[in-house]
Design a protein around this nucleic acid. Structure first.
Lengths: 185, 185
DNA sequence: ACAGGTTTGTACCGATTGGTACAATAAACG
DNA sequence: CGTTTATTGTACCAATCGGTACAAACCTGT
């Protein structure tokens, strides 16, 4: 083995932060190098596919986190109200109570959608489907459950947008609190 | 006078479409030139401030449209339910029933926020404030009206994001329909 | 200490970025 | 018809873009 490789998780986290802050086009290799403290040599050593592979790895990483911490709780066999509560807790944790943007939401808007369309679609699809499942177990009928799930995921995205627009994370926290009341009612 | 100037409104509309589709960073002058059919000479003649002035003019144009067609109806002195209905109609019209993205929402996410933070903030602020006003005239108390308005504007943004993520404009139409029921109830 | 493979900095590449300068052009007005 | 003035294409600029090549530095297993 050669030199000690830096921990990949921390690297992916830093990369994610840069992409979140500046979008795909706005994230230059120079900025990545500055944020991570790595030169091009190291970056292209870990990600031979360049910027696109970096963004792909970041998306996969986020995807896995949501799978484990947000979607999975919804599919558990316990009482659905508690499952939904845990989902909202994880959501609030991930988005740092509104201080963090959603990378997949940002990518959905600009033309990163062309490169990562499948990942983006799958991410939102699984979120809505698992939430709708929990809502049905809580007694909602199929069409209403689906609509309520759609509204909730859309509401999260919109609240994140507003929180960033106003530079007031509380907008997100408040919105999440109202969703909690609405979903368990 | 010199040559006949192309109509500024059509030019701004084309510019807006390019910015909406590719974001601020992703919109190169080459792309603008191709989309508008104008060379750099013309572009810098109309917008001496370059790309930033173009984006600013586009935002001002959108701002004016929303002021007249979306915010103003909410402030009218007629019955608030009809006012809210007209607001939703104009919203659906502008976003082409979900086929069009929101430029201000997109700018709020990436670092265009640094350049146009005030415009973005003002846009969402006026939307929420005018809607909350109409809701109060409809009988809602102040805090609930404000929260409902916030949820609605956030919901529009989120629905646009989802519609783009899934490439299914119907997601937006459905969401808007549910908002209509929720707001007039 | 040595050899192996890994990590890293640096120099370099062509292409494209936003922006400037300016001469050529064409319409409107006297 | 000629002058004026707004419009336009083209050439050019330094800076930066994403990406490649490769030799030097380094850590680890023997």
């Amino acid at each position: 083995m050669g030199r000690t490789a830096p921990d990949k998780d921390g690297l992916l986290a830093t990369l994610a932060e840069v992409f979140r802050e500046h979008g795909y086009e706005g994230t230059s290799l120079a900025r990545i190098g500055h944020a991570t403290g790595l030169g091009k040599g190291s970056l292209y050593n870990f990600f031979p596919g360049g910027k696109e592979e970096m963004a792909g790895a970041v998306l996969a990483n986020i995807d896995a986190w949501f799978d484990e911490n947000v979607f999975a709780p919804l599919c558990d066999e316990c009482e659905p109200a508690a499952a939904i509560g845990r989902m909202l807790d994880a959501t609030d944790l991930y988005f740092r109570s509104g201080r963090r943007a959603c990378l997949l939401g940002a990518f959905a808007l600009d033309d990163s959608r062309d490169r990562f369309g499948n990942e983006i679609k799958s991410y939102f699809d699984r979120w809505i489907a698992s939430l709708a499942g929990a809502l049905m177990r809580a007694g909602h009928r199929q069409p209403e459950a689906r609509q309520l799930a759609e509204d909730t995921v859309a509401g999260v995205q919109g609240a994140l947008t507003l929180a960033r627009a106003f530079d007031e994370p509380e907008v997100f926290s408040r919105s999440l609190k109202r969703m909690r009341e609405r979903l368990v009612a």
